[in-house]
């Protein structure tokens, strides 16, 4: 006679919601959250990395009972948070070189072991410091299974030094070093770059996950899960960069959401080298919806519109959807 569907005013898509019990609310909804990256940092307006870092480190702090040390590679996150003598960090924090933060974190973790303390260790860096410059140290940390959670904030280029291409820059994107020129301007070439999450999986470390600032609940759940495990763990967080992407600072979360919903950024998790869950697409959108909002892809929409290039990008999204079963609600972790 009547249909009743389990339902809350906004379900759990929002950060908090007064209708949810305390346990169901996110770390970010709490008045007592650490604010690990405090106000006054010098990130640009609408910085996805600053947001992602606070989301992740606050969750890690809660999981570690506030007993946590962070190692930070050179990059935007380090520069905007710690212009001497200021620091935005609300936890013990050490800056390493661009390329060695995984190694430094290994050392910090070893020190804790020798000292017999329970202090947990976090390493973090941008995509440049992770997928390019720090990659050797990172791979070493993985294969030794050192007790470190490494978090990569992926904004898809070297933003701090002026938006140069990294091995995480998507095809067709304009950067300072992939300027679209000529009659059929294409930007970054297709068929290059790498997926560090998949490479991390190949090390068969206990836990690998991707996450996004557009899905806070998922991100917090993954950080919390990673913190419950010892050994090498890797979380790769998609963080839009308004400056480098040529986007409205207000669109940071919207862009991250469109990247997920189009399939361009697959959100999944893996344990010991095997995929164990994925976040299903909720409202699928064509990649164009995502691309159009960013000036780094503007050359695809000028006369003549680069229909074939856009189709190639759609093919990448479609492949992700197939590969990670992104349209399957069943078996979805989130």
């Amino acid at each position: 006679m009547e249909t009743t569907i389990k339902f809350y005013q906004t379900d759990t898509f929002t950060v908090g919601n007064r209708l949810l019990s305390e346990a169901e609310r996110s770390v970010q909804a709490g008045m007592q959250r650490t604010n690990a990256l405090n106000s006054g940092h010098r990130a640009c307006q609408g910085c996805g990395e600053a947001l992602g870092a606070r989301f992740a480190v606050d969750a890690a702090m809660r999981a570690a009972g506030n007993d946590l040390i962070a190692c930070n590679a050179t990059g935007c996150l380090e520069v905007f948070s710690t212009p001497y003598p200021e620091s935005s960090w609300q936890l013990p924090w050490i800056h390493s070189l661009f390329g060695n933060t995984a190694a430094v974190a290994t050392g910090v973790a070893a020190a804790q072991r020798v000292k017999g303390t329970k202090t947990r260790v976090l390493a973090q860096g941008g995509d440049g410091g992770t997928t390019d410059i720090g990659f050797g140290c990172l791979s070493g940390m993985f294969e030794r299974n050192d007790d470190v959670l490494y978090i990569c904030y992926d904004n898809e280029a070297y933003m701090n030094t002026g938006v140069q291409r990294s091995s995480a820059t998507p095809p067709a994107a304009r950067t300072a070093t992939t300027v679209p020129v000529g009659q059929h301007p294409n930007g970054n070439v297709f068929g290059k770059g790498k997926s560090v999450p998949l490479i991390a999986m190949a090390h068969e470390i206990p836990y690998v996950a991707t996450a996004s600032v557009a899905d806070l609940r998922d991100l917090e759940a993954k950080v919390t899960k990673a913190m419950s495990i010892h050994g090498a763990r890797y979380i790769h967080i998609h963080v839009p960069c308004p400056l480098g992407w040529g986007a409205d600072p207000a669109h940071t979360i919207k862009l991250a959401r469109l990247a997920i919903e189009s399939g361009l950024f697959p959100v999944f998790e893996a344990e010991h080298g095997e995929i164990t869950g994925h976040r299903a697409i909720r409202e699928q959108v064509p990649v164009e919806d995502y691309l159009k909002l960013q000036k780094r892809f503007a050359h695809l929409f000028r006369n003549p519109k680069q229909v074939e290039v856009i189709a190639q990008l759609q093919a990448i999204a479609d492949r992700n959807i197939r590969r990670f079963k992104l349209l399957e609600k069943r078996g979805a972790a989130v």
């Binding site: 929002t14 950060v15 106000s39 910085c47």
Partner: peptide, 14 residues
């Protein structure tokens, strides 16, 4: 309606 979104999504904790 106090969903905490503004509080959560501010990159500057402002």
């Amino acid at each position: 309606f106090e969903c905490d979104n503004c509080y959560g999504v501010c990159p500057d904790s402002a």
